[in-house]
Simulated scan of single mutants.
Amino acid sequence: MADSDSGVALEPAPRPSRATTVTPPPVPVRRRRGGRNGSHVLAHVVLLSGAVIMAFPFVWQVIMSLSTNAEVQSVTPHVWPHRLQWGNYHQVFEQLPFLHQLRTSVVITVIRTAAQLLLCTLAGYAFARMRFRGRGALLGIVLSILMVPAQVYLLSQYQIVKGLGLLDSLGGLVLPGLFSAFGTYLMRTAFLALPQELEEAARLDGANPFQIFWRVMLPLVRPTMSVLAITSVLWSWNELLWPLVVTTYSDHMPLSAGLATLISDRTINYPVVMAASLLAMAPVLVLFILLQRRVIDGLASSGLK
Rank of each mutant, 00 (worst) to 15 (best):
L304W: 04
T247W: 03
S180D: 05
L143R: 08
V286T: 06
V142Q: 03
A275M: 07
M281D: 05
R129V: 15
A201R: 05
S144C: 12
S4F: 10
Q95W: 09
M64E: 13
T21V: 12
H78A: 12
H40R: 13
D168R: 05
D168I: 01
S67F: 04
A115M: 13
Q159H: 03
K162Q: 15
R33D: 14
V107P: 11
A43I: 09
R31H: 14
V295K: 04
P12G: 13
V52Q: 09
P283A: 15
F213L: 13
F93W: 05
V8E: 15
V221H: 04
I63F: 12
Q157S: 11
V8M: 08
P77Q: 14
L102T: 15
V148I: 14
M187Q: 10
P176S: 00
D168N: 15
L119V: 15
V272S: 03
M130F: 03
S264M: 04
D251M: 11
G50S: 13
Q85Y: 06
F179R: 04
A276W: 01
L255Y: 02
R203C: 09
Y89G: 11
P28A: 14
T261F: 05
L186P: 03
P209A: 13
I296F: 01
L47F: 13
G140V: 03
R133I: 15
S256N: 08
A282H: 08
G140E: 09
D5W: 00
F127E: 02
L186V: 01
V41D: 10
L138Q: 08
T23G: 15
Q91W: 07
L117A: 07
H44T: 07
S74T: 01
D297S: 12
V79Y: 14
W242P: 01
L255V: 07
I53E: 08
L204Y: 07
Q73F: 14
L240G: 00
S264V: 11
Q116Y: 01
F98I: 15
L96Y: 04
V286C: 08
Q211V: 04
A19V: 09
Q85W: 06
T231C: 05
K162M: 11
P176K: 01
I212F: 02
M217N: 10
R129M: 05
L119N: 00
D205L: 05
P271L: 11
K305P: 00
Q292V: 04
P97R: 05
V246E: 06
T68K: 08
S226V: 14
A9F: 13
Y89S: 10
L299H: 00
F98E: 10
S180W: 08
E199R: 14
A55R: 05
V272C: 04
L220P: 07
N269I: 06
T23N: 11
M225T: 02
G140Y: 06
M147D: 03
V245G: 00
E200D: 13
I145P: 00
W235E: 02
A300S: 10
V161A: 13
F98D: 08
E94H: 00
P271E: 14
L42Q: 09
L240H: 09
S144I: 12
V142W: 01
T104L: 14
H90L: 11
I268T: 15
R30W: 05
L279W: 01
H40E: 06
W235V: 15
V46Y: 10
L154K: 05
